[in-house]
Computed example of a mutant assay.
Amino acid sequence: MSIDYYVSKQTSEKIYTQVNKIPPNKVGLLLGTSKYLSSGHINLYYKYRIEAATKLYRSGKIKFILISGDNGSKSYNEPELMKQDLIENNIPEANIFLDYAGFRTLDSVLRAQKIFGQNTFTVISQEFHNERALYLAQYFNIEAVAFNAKDVKLNYGLKTQLREKLARCKMMLDLLFKVEPKYLGDPIKIE
């Protein structure tokens, strides 16, 4: 059985595509990605994640949004860009929290628990990414569910799909070798 298939199978019962079916949670963990492609066009993965988080918030399925992404340099800040777009979608700034050290999915999931105090949350990303995040959550005894943002057409996201296969292998190695998040730090309350 391939790692790819195994991860998908282990998480399938906790992934939702319809807002009215997903159980409510206090916090939605919005996984970061870049807003723009190298061509300068908007990244559809980004656009659809913003739409999904907005939909969950407006329907009352989450009360707060924790944006976890890369802020590795002064010119690159996934959480801040996502926050601005959520505010433009009428989500109150007070209900948005930023995790600037979500350099990878392992960091995002564990920091949501260890820094932001969440043992239960809703992951928001595309299905392939949600499966990996949920697998990590299950491994660390976190009660998470996931909401799938709209996916992109195969030819648009082929490079991302191939990268995901490698990311799942790396995830298994990280778990085997007990890799920790790059940064931890002081607790932050979401309230």
Rank of each mutant, 00 (worst) to 15 (best):
V123C: 14
I22Y: 02
H129N: 03
N20G: 01
G185W: 13
Y139C: 11
E131T: 01
F64E: 10
L110S: 04
L134E: 03
F177R: 14
E191G: 09
K182S: 05
A52P: 06
Y156W: 04
V27L: 08
K170M: 07
L29T: 02
N141M: 08
T17G: 13
A52I: 10
V152K: 00
L166R: 13
V27M: 05
G40D: 07
L134H: 07
L184G: 06
Q161W: 05
A149W: 06
F121Q: 00
I15K: 09
A144F: 04
N119F: 01
E51W: 09
V109Y: 00
M171C: 15
I115D: 05
A133W: 04
A149D: 05
G102T: 00
K9D: 13
F128C: 02
Y139P: 01
K21Y: 04
Q10F: 08
S125Y: 04
K74F: 12
D151Q: 12
P23R: 11
L29E: 00
R111D: 09
L31E: 01
Y6Q: 14
Y57I: 11
V19A: 12
E191P: 01
F128G: 02
D186H: 14
P24F: 11
S39K: 03
V123Y: 00
K14E: 01
I188N: 07
V7I: 15
Y57R: 10
L37H: 11
K83N: 10
L175A: 09
N89F: 09
I42K: 08
Y183S: 06
Y57H: 12
V27W: 02
G32S: 06
Y6S: 13
E164H: 07
L31A: 02
E131C: 04
S34F: 04
H129W: 02
K165R: 15
F64H: 15
L136N: 02
I22N: 00
R163W: 03
T160N: 10
L110M: 13
E78C: 03
I115P: 03
S12P: 01
I50H: 06
N77P: 11
L56K: 06
D151L: 06
M1L: 12
Y6P: 00
D151E: 14
E180T: 15
N43C: 08
A101G: 08
A133F: 04
R132G: 09
I62Q: 08
I190D: 07
F103G: 08
T120N: 13
N77G: 12
V152I: 13
F147L: 10
F97I: 03
L184F: 13
Q113C: 11
P23S: 05
S108G: 04
D186T: 15
E143A: 11
L184I: 15
K35D: 10
S59N: 11
P24M: 06
I190N: 10
K35W: 04
